[in-house]
Design a protein around this nucleic acid. Structure first.
Length: 230
DNA sequence: ATCTGATCATAC
DNA sequence: GTATGATCAGAT
């Protein structure tokens, strides 16, 4: 295993953040964890989010688990998203964006979804057989193109309309070409206020980007430096 | 092989 | 409980 060193300073702008992220391209999660002085969890099923938190620490994200973008620069916030990919660079999972309230849904221009996705640093993680063997790919600093934003907005508004009409029963992960609205808790697990002041029983929902969408974002992007195999 | 509902961990 | 970080695993 190669020796790996971390840089010390917190990035002060996008360029520094991108440079810092790029410096990790090719590292395994084991190497990154060792450099940070943390253990790689043995049980993958109990380690969801490990790669994301590891990269947050490695890149000195300010906000950690608090609300708002991971990095706040004078020029604007940047959201950090790790994206699990296979050896060919295809995303293996959908991407969580943010939770959604069925009691209240903002129009697209003021939506949390739009704010979250305005500026994203994507870091592909090429999944290894073992979690520790997974490798950090090269980063991509992204904002939605006009076409991408239009597509996301269309999906979002369709979800928002169902919510506004109270058709919560017909909300499912099947809807949305690129942006899904799916449960993030067990059915019937939560009780929350509805617009009339009563209580609505139902799962917590959240917006997710389909893998087909993130695949297009990182398509033809250089994913992970060669591992030295033929 | 892909997708949707369910699930896990941590911070506040 | 809500937010952050996501991935698991059974259904299709």
């Amino acid at each position: 295993m190669r020796r790996r060193r971390l840089r010390r300073r917190r990035p002060r702008d996008e360029a520094e953040l991108f440079g810092a992220a790029h410096a990790f391209a090719g590292w395994s999660l084991a190497e990154l964890a060792r450099a940070l002085g943390v253990e790689v969890p043995p049980d993958v099923r109990r380690a969801k989010g490990f790669a994301g938190r590891l990269l947050e620490r490695a890149l000195r994200a300010e906000r950690g688990s608090r609300a708002g973008p991971d990095f706040v620069f004078p020029a604007g916030g940047v959201e950090l998203k790790t994206l699990p990919v296979d050896a060919r660079g295809r995303p293996l999972e959908s991407t969580f964006v943010c939770s959604a309230s069925l009691a209240e849904i903002a129009p697209w221009p003021e939506s949390k979804v739009r704010a979250k996705l305005a500026r994203v640093l994507w870091i592909p993680i090429e999944r290894g057989v073992e979690l520790a063997e997974s490798r950090v790919g090269s980063p991509l600093l992204w904002s939605p193109s006009a076409a991408e934003e239009q597509a996301l907005a269309a999906d979002y508004e369709a979800h928002a309309e169902l919510i506004a009409l109270g058709y919560t029963a017909s909300i499912s992960g099947h809807r949305g070409r690129f942006l899904q609205l799916r449960p993030k808790s067990k059915l019937g697990a939560a009780r929350r206020p509805d617009p009339e002041g009563g209580l609505v029983l139902g799962p917590r929902r959240a917006f997710y980007l389909r893998a087909s969408f993130t695949a297009r974002i990182i398509a033809r992007h250089y994913i992970v430096p060669p591992a030295g195999e033929p």
